[in-house]
Design a protein around this nucleic acid. Sequence first.
DNA 1: GAGTGGTCTAGACCACCGT
DNA 2: CGGTGGTCTAGACCACTCC
Lengths: 254, 254
Amino acid sequence: MTRDPLTTRRPRPTLPDRVRDALLGDLYSNVYVAGDRLPNEDELAARFEVSRATIREAVRGLVEAGYLVRRHGSGTFVTARPRHRHTLNANLSYTAMIREAGLEPGRKLLRRLVRKATGDEAGALAIAAGEPVLFVERIRTADGRPVVYSTDRIPTALLGDAADGAIGSSLYELLAGVRREVCSALATLRPVIADERLAHLLDVHVGSPLQRIEQVHFDELGRPVMLSSEWHVPDVFELSVNRMSDAPAGNAGA
Amino acid sequence: MTRDPLTTRRPRPTLPDRVRDALLGDLYSNVYVAGDRLPNEDELAARFEVSRATIREAVRGLVEAGYLVRRHGSGTFVTARPRHRHTLNANLSYTAMIREAGLEPGRKLLRRLVRKATGDEAGALAIAAGEPVLFVERIRTADGRPVVYSTDRIPTALLGDAADGAIGSSLYELLAGVRREVCSALATLRPVIADERLAHLLDVHVGSPLQRIEQVHFDELGRPVMLSSEWHVPDVFELSVNRMSDAPAGNAGA
DNA sequence: GAGTGGTCTAGACCACCGT
DNA sequence: CGGTGGTCTAGACCACTCC
């Protein structure tokens, strides 16, 4: 046993974590409500018996999560209910979005082959044109109904032996398996009209609107690892985005 | 004069700001390139003659901006070139996006009136149905060509006397003028087909695809202040989104 | 086990906001 | 002016990673 279990033992949650959870509890139980000013940092430090730096770390997390705002010289204030989770910008997983809509996600593999990269593909993936890429063509379903048709390309050079096998598993898992986990992506959205082929694949009428999303996926270090083209059937699950006027912290302007 | 101008004077840029700028300079002049490990924090602290806390603050900014990643127990690493600016999620201004595309933004006012809020509008704006809202109908142009048709609603209760006058100015400025500056928004995107009226307004063919964006704008405290419906002509300026696997810091899960 | 980033303290002073 | 958050220090110890 250590000297003083009460103060010494600190297995998982850090002090800022515990302070944050306590404040979050106060927010959810309406001890503080939207517009209220929190006690100042010295007072919070005294109340929780931690240093002011620890309080600031805890509050920083709640500010980033959108629960609080700080105003220099004035105080720290409670915001109205925080933003949606499951937005495009804060989420890479359509599976999670489909579940959020109360539907059961599924996947169907149409094709899987290795071919040479086109010029556009090579440019987006930072490889030479003609380099081999794994090409996968799939349909996602929600409660069995088709909702997304997609094609994905991954340079085989990234995959090594992993390119074979693991056919059923997610491409994210495939990349994570070779230490190139997808951490971010840049998506470009454009409305298009369903042609005969897309209408057939997605079980919609020719001429109906589809959301096209062109997307480059990046690993932890920001290197491109996968290029995707997606066609979404609208109104099955929402595509939403949290927007913020930028430069929230450390405005390293470039 | 103060004692020692060289070390005492510190008018605007803070120490972390200066360290950050110095590191950013090293990144842009390729002193460090993608994948490199930075010197450890103690060494940086010694080099810049500041405390380790200051180094951590500087690095935090560069991590949030996407230039660096930290790996506990391993080091701090340089990423490949950071993400786009001018994405939907990091930007509230279409004017800036249009300029980014090298085009000249413009606006045309179609209608401006005060009417009662519908049930949907009232729900989104957290007011009672039937409360008066300022309703504005406009078209945005890029190099004179129509690119966005939009309708906006603002509760007149927020505006006071400011509701009149200032017809030509931006609605953001109108709200900022009554201390309810727009700081964030939640946008939902959906592809639609141009009907006769939209086709006429936006100078496109009936049946062509349009991007519809339904959006609630919030002030600093997260209170809704404006509801917008927009119809975008595709391919004039890009609508793109930076996506991240969430919980980057202070994962205050809800 | 050596080296890295992560947590934490106590205390000082600065910059901004309101009255 | 008093009160608030913002910056900064020096030093200690912890937790993770990799050899």
